[in-house]
Simulated scan of single mutants.
Amino acid sequence: MNWSAISFDWNHVRAFLATVEEGSLSAAARATGLTQPTLGRQVAALEDAIGVTLFERVGRSLTLTTSGAQLVDHVRAMGDAATRISLAASGQSHSIEGLVRISVSDVLATYQLPKIIAQLRDTAPGIEVEVVASNAISDLLRRDADIALRHVRPEQPALIARKLADNRAYLYATPDYLTRIGSPTTLQGFKNAEFIGFGVPDEMLPHFVAMGLPLSRANIRYHSHSGVVGWQMVRQGLGVGVMSEEVARLSPEVVRALPDQSAIVFPTWLVSHRELITSSRIRLVFDVLAAALG
């Protein structure tokens, strides 16, 4: 550990993170219980300590600079770690109990969430988790769930959202299936291939075409509203499908259909209701999800 390289104060980092997540100094001051001038001085002190301008200041508005945006993910990881340290030191995590409902896609619920729940079990054994596995967007305002993982940012002001990552997806198939269709090396080579659709085929087709695939409705021979079922069809060699790199990595029987294909980039957002996030059990689960998927 290079201790001399750590020249900043955690309180200043906390002030920066709160300002980013709350959207303004005034909102961050309310969230942290500090005054706005104090928070502003702490952010300025962090800028001085690391020699980087974090915000562009125009009147009363703040806009992240490029350097500030590059630091956000690292600072969030520090915040998540600080939360876990505080809970562990006080023993609070083991005393937190109650139900938390998490809304996620069926693919994430099947392939990625169980490992995270196992981590949560060790951190807070009193937490009960209900997984709402659905590919529809849960209505958090109506309390369909406490926390949701989405690929679109919510627009409702009553919700808070944290962008966890920009994920990458590619076309996948089994080696046997690719051999059967002639081992294509270009997108045009998939003109006569069978494709697996997730959801309504007529809605899926434009996404395939936008990727440069010369497909028609007839190419989407097999489809399901369940992402898990669709992915199983790909794994069983029925055709070509799109999947996130993280999930595909857990399925050694499939390979990238085109190794040189450009990634399909999609974001993952962690969302909760502003009122619910003040609950210790929901905040804890929120932070564990953020640390695991960020």
Rank of each mutant, 00 (worst) to 15 (best):
I160E: 14
R150M: 11
G126P: 08
R153P: 01
A145W: 03
K115R: 14
V152R: 12
S134K: 07
I137K: 11
I137Y: 07
P154E: 09
I117W: 00
V131G: 01
R121K: 08
E155M: 12
A161I: 06
R121M: 02
A136Q: 13
I117L: 10
R150I: 01
H151M: 08
D122S: 11
N135I: 04
E130R: 14
L120I: 03
L140E: 03
D146E: 13
A161Y: 07
Q119S: 04
I116H: 04
D144S: 15
I160G: 13
I147H: 07
Q119E: 09
I160P: 01
G126E: 07
L120Q: 01
E155Q: 14
I116K: 04
L120T: 01
H151T: 14
V131W: 03
L149W: 01
R121S: 02
K115W: 08
H151C: 06
V129G: 02
A124R: 02
Q119V: 01
P157M: 13
P125L: 05
V132K: 09
I117R: 00
L159V: 07
R150P: 00
I147T: 06
H151D: 12
A145C: 13
P154R: 11
I137C: 00
S134I: 09
N135Y: 03
K115C: 03
I127C: 08
R143L: 13
R153I: 05
I147W: 08
N135Q: 06
R150W: 12
A124M: 03
Q119G: 00
A133K: 06
R143T: 13
G126R: 12
D139T: 09
L159C: 10
V129S: 02
R121I: 00
L149I: 10
R121H: 02
L140T: 07
I160R: 14
A124W: 02
A118W: 00
V132L: 15
L159Y: 05
G126H: 08
D144H: 15
D122V: 03
L149Y: 04
L159I: 07
N135E: 10
A158V: 10
K115H: 13
A161P: 04
V129A: 03
D139G: 07
R142H: 14
Q156Y: 12
P157D: 15
A145I: 06
L149G: 04
